[in-house]
């Protein structure tokens, strides 16, 4: 059988996986919304969460779409579409595909036409990222109960513990922004973008607190992110 990485069959497989992701997301969304209403949370807050997250997600989602386009050049559309819609991230999928292709002595400069190479890449992409799912399946409940115990025992320390986890994540990404500065002025662009994003967030905070622009609270992170992306587009040609 002639192999086509953009075949109807592969699109049907991708479609089935996407439907599963949609079903699971809708299930958890409706369940959490209903629970929120049941325990007396303000419906307006719940709706605002949906709206602000939806708006905020668009730009990062477009960058994920770029990952699909990058991988589609040699893997066709369906497999990257599946991989980046379920567990995957471009930071993992690209090295997984490249390593397997190299191991098989295949170039990724053109579309794969050998089904065995394609299936080997599909297996590596799948198996290489699955352990986290098994850990969630078997260990999450125990871990969450541990956190609950910690919070019950000492509520303030429990809150500080969770805040520290967030700060650890933010610190790692703050540090990463500085990794290119040895390459000269263009290496400073991510730092300028980060600082501009921080500045915009600061201005949003000022407008919310001092000018009473409460509506901006929902969109402050989106504004700071999109504003600094526009800033990146403007300064990069000037600096780089």
């Amino acid at each position: 059988m002639q192999f086509d990485p953009n075949s109807l069959f592969l699109f049907c497989v991708a479609g089935a996986v996407i439907l599963f992701v949609i079903a699971q997301s809708v299930f958890f969304l409706v369940r959490a919304y209903r629970r929120g209403c049941a325990i007396g949370m303000d419906k307006a807050v719940l709706r605002r969460t949906v709206l602000s997250t939806a708006v905020f997600t668009v730009a990062p989602a477009v960058s994920i779409l770029l990952g699909v386009i990058t991988l589609a050049k040699f893997l066709g559309i369906p497999l990257p579409w599946v991989r980046l819609s379920i567990i995957g991230a471009i930071t993992y999928e690209l090295p997984a595909a490249t390593t397997t292709a190299q191991a098989l002595g295949v170039s990724l400069s053109e579309t794969i036409t050998d089904p065995r190479v394609y299936s080997a890449i599909a297996w590596v992409m799948t198996l290489g990222i699955m352990p986290g799912m098994f850990v969630v399946l078997f260990a999450l409940k125990k871990m969450q109960h541990g956190i609950l115990k910690l919070k019950t025992k000492d509520s303030k320390w429990g809150d500080l513990f969770l805040t520290s986890l967030f700060l650890g994540m933010i610190s790692a990404f703050l540090g990463m922004v500085f990794s290119d500065i040895r390459s000269g002025l263009p290496g400073f662009i991510p730092i300028f973008v980060l600082l501009f994003s921080a500045l915009l967030m600061g201005i949003c905070g000022f407008l919310i607190r001092r000018c009473g622009w409460k509506w901006l609270e929902t969109y402050a992170l989106t504004v700071s992110m999109l504003g600094s992306l526009v800033f990146a587009v403007i300064i990069t040609p000037l600096i780089g």
């Binding site: 996407i18 629970r35 989602a61 559309i77």
Partner: peptide, 29 residues
């Protein structure tokens, strides 16, 4: 985070984000 309200808001945000990402990628494809 860690409270029941936090659990609900976090779940709503992640579910919404997943749906929007899926829609953006689907439209993009």
């Amino acid at each position: 985070p860690g409270s029941e309200e936090g659990e609900i808001i976090s779940t709503i945000a992640i579910a919404t984000s997943s749906l929007v990402t899926t829609a953006v990628i689907a439209l993009g494809v």
